[in-house]
C-alpha cells in the first residue's frame, strides 16, 4: 500500500451537495426497483453504512411518506481478514422489528472495493435469517473486485489505482459530508 500523503495529493470526488444528490438518486432507484419499497428492509454495514441507510430511509419517507425499516448488520465476526490486523472492536447488529425472514434486504455500505465485506455480510445475513432477496447499495464503487459481486445501486463509479484510497466522510460521524480520493501519485 502506498503511504497516504498530505492533502496535496488528494482531490474531492463528491462535495456535500453532490453527495446529497447521489443519496436522493439512490433513494429514488430503490423505490423504483422495489415497487415502492414494499417488504423491503435497509441494513447498514457499520460504520458508515449505518447513517447512509438512515439517510436513504429518511429520503424515501420524504419522497413517498413510506416508513421503511432500517437496521444495522455488523460483519466483523465474519471477516476473512481478521488475522491480518489487530483485533477489531465489534459494531452493532440491530435488526428491525419483524426481522428479515421473507423480506427484501438492501445492504448499504459506503465503498464497494474487493467485495469481501459484502461476502461477509451475506454470510452474516445467512445466520440471521432467510430474506426473499438481497440487494446492495453503495455510495462509491471504486472497482478492483476480488469476488463475483456487483452492486444494484451505485452512487458514483470512481476509477482508482490500487495505490489510491477513497475516504468517505459523513456528518454523523466525521462532522462533514464529502468523498475524497487520496494518495497514489508516486505510483
Amino acid at each position: 500500500m502506498a503511504q497516504p500523503r498530505a492533502d496535496a495529493s488528494s482531490k474531492i470526488i463528491l462535495s456535500a451537495s453532490d453527495l446529497h444528490r447521489v443519496v436522493d438518486r439512490i433513494a429514488h432507484q430503490i423505490l423504483e426497483k422495489t415497487s415502492g419499497a414494499t417488504g423491503t428492509v435497509l441494513l447498514g454495514i457499520p460504520t458508515r453504512g449505518v447513517p447512509l441507510a438512515e439517510r436513504l430511509a429518511a429520503r424515501i419517507h420524504a419522497f413517498e411518506g413510506i416508513d421503511i425499516p432500517v437496521g444495522s448488520l455488523d460483519i466483523t465476526l465474519y471477516r476473512d481478514d481478521l488475522r491480518l490486523h489487530a483485533t477489531r472492536a465489534l459494531g452493532k447488529t440491530e435488526l428491525p422489528g419483524g426481522g428479515i425472514d421473507g423480506r427484501r434486504v438492501v445492504l448499504v455500505d459506503d465503498v464497494l472495493y474487493s467485495g469481501r465485506t459484502v461476502r461477509a455480510a451475506l454470510d452474516a445475513l445467512n445466520d440471521e435469517g432467510r430474506p426473499s432477496s438481497v440487494q446492495l447499495a453503495v455510495l462509491v464503487d471504486r472497482g478492483h473486485r476480488q469476488l463475483p459481486i456487483r452492486a444494484d445501486y451505485v452512487g458514483k463509479n470512481i476509477p482508482t489505482s490500487l495505490a489510491e484510497s477513497v475516504r468517505v466522510s459523513l456528518t454523523e460521524i466525521d462532522g462533514l459530508d464529502e468523498v475524497k480520493l487520496t494518495g497514489g501519485e508516486d505510483q
Partner: peptide, 23 residues
C-alpha cells in the same frame, strides 16, 4: 470496557437460532 461491550454483542447473537460464528 471493550470486553464488556463485546460480551454484550455476543449475548445479543446468542438469542438467534444459529448461535455459531465462523470467527
Amino acid at each position: 470496557t471493550l470486553i464488556l461491550d463485546t460480551a454484550g454483542e455476543m449475548a445479543a447473537l446468542a438469542g438467534r437460532e444459529v448461535k455459531k460464528l465462523p470467527t
